[in-house]
Design a protein around this nucleic acid. Sequence first.
RNA 1: GGCGGCGUGGCCGAGUGGUUUAGGCAGGGGCCUGCAAAGCCCCGUACGGCGGUUCGAUUCCGCCCGCCGCCUCCA
Length: 464
Amino acid sequence: MLTLHDTATGQVVPLRPRQAGKIGLYVCGPTVDGVPHLGHGRFSLVFDVLRRYLLFSGLEVTYVSNITDIEDKIIERAADRGVPIEEFTASNEALWWEIMDALGVLRPDETPHATAYVDRMVDLIRDLVERGVAYETATGVYLSVLDVPGYGLLARQPLDSLRAGARIEADEEKRSPLDFVLWKKAKPGEPSWDAPWGAGRPGWHTECVVMALDLLGEGFELHGGGQDLIFPHHENERAQAVADGKEFARHWMHNGWVTVGGEKMSKSLGNFTSLADLLERSDARAYRVLVLRSHYRSPIEVTPDTIAQAEAGLARLDELARRFDLSDLLADGPLTGPSSQDGELDSDAVAAFVAAMDSDLDTPGALATVFDLARRANAAADAGDDDGAARAARTAALLAGALGLRLGADGAAEVDDAAAGLVAARDDARASKDWARADALRDELEAAGWLVEDSAEGTRIRRR
RNA sequence: GGCGGCGUGGCCGAGUGGUUUAGGCAGGGGCCUGCAAAGCCCCGUACGGCGGUUCGAUUCCGCCCGCCGCCUCCA
């Protein structure tokens, strides 16, 4: 049974499905105001792994992740570039999905867009005003957080200390500095929708409540995102649901930062690396390995060195896939638990994997079982125990796949004629024990970017 | 100031009141190999500091030091 750290209580507790076997999962997606960076990649990978594991555990999962396509920065940047907002957000979103695909992140079941939900947001805001917990000012409509029972639950701080740090808003009409905007009245030239309070646009915190409740229903199982969303974003989402008399998420899960030189990577610090840059210079799977190697709540440091370490580990697993015929397991990660079609598996290792994952998603522990299986598979094969080797190797590939890691025998393809000629020549040289010539030919192949290995069948090469 | 997290062997990174090692990378030795590569075997005896509880603490408690974050848009 999967247990997870719940931000609301600070405890690691079992998930409590409304209905046995079904999980509704809402994860705050990106604001499409620019290029996706490492931080986006981390949350995407963390929740992709969670989702895959829920499926692996035999649960039925509905995964919803939104696209915020209307927001202040979007308006600003689109204007700076002189392009229509829709065009700006559409191109950023296209890039987003392109990169998610490259990272092997499964598409959400639903990807609601804020702009498609404005009417429903207006409905919610109207409701909150009628209930007397929201009020209108010259600049917009605000939620009165002091009227919300339990406000501060996620922040886990007394209201006073939150208030002490609250920014002085331009709007002096706000009843409490913590009150946040539900509806922003449009200034001239800004995009807007009609509403009872005048043309305007919804505040950021409103979209996720409406979309989550619409697509997953009241009291859905799990709501997640990066730790920086805990307060105020998630706090405020919850506040609106509570103020509207609805049960919101039962469980809250938040992933840790990507750090650079020990500091949080963030848009405001400007110290971020785009995912496109990362993917250009490393194996797309390396970042997933990096994310898996640490616990989801710990910070991770992404540097050329840590990426290289991840790639080295990956090479070891790829070597395993090359040594054993695992093609039927390599196509796609399993999206269900192990089945009889997977052949004989190492049930102890599967149990260890499950125990690790069930324990607040201990992916480093889960990965360790995969590497352990790899070693055992190789050792068994070296010892002539083919059955044991196959069992361990198949289990390793299956479990890696469950984490979304596709082991590859890539690089074997597309041996060009020139390289093939060198390989043949080298095999001849080796057959006649002309070692000097054989070594020279190996150097030539390596200079051409090939990795050279001898085997019983002769010289084998693959791309580095 | 308030609240929270972290500090493990060369590096990354789990975990636990004591008997059997997390795992990976790098490094050393060995096996295999014409030489390599890959693979396998062996090795380094780590847990920020000071006290306390305990038969025994890296693991519990207290204090201290250091680092990071939230309290403002941010994954």
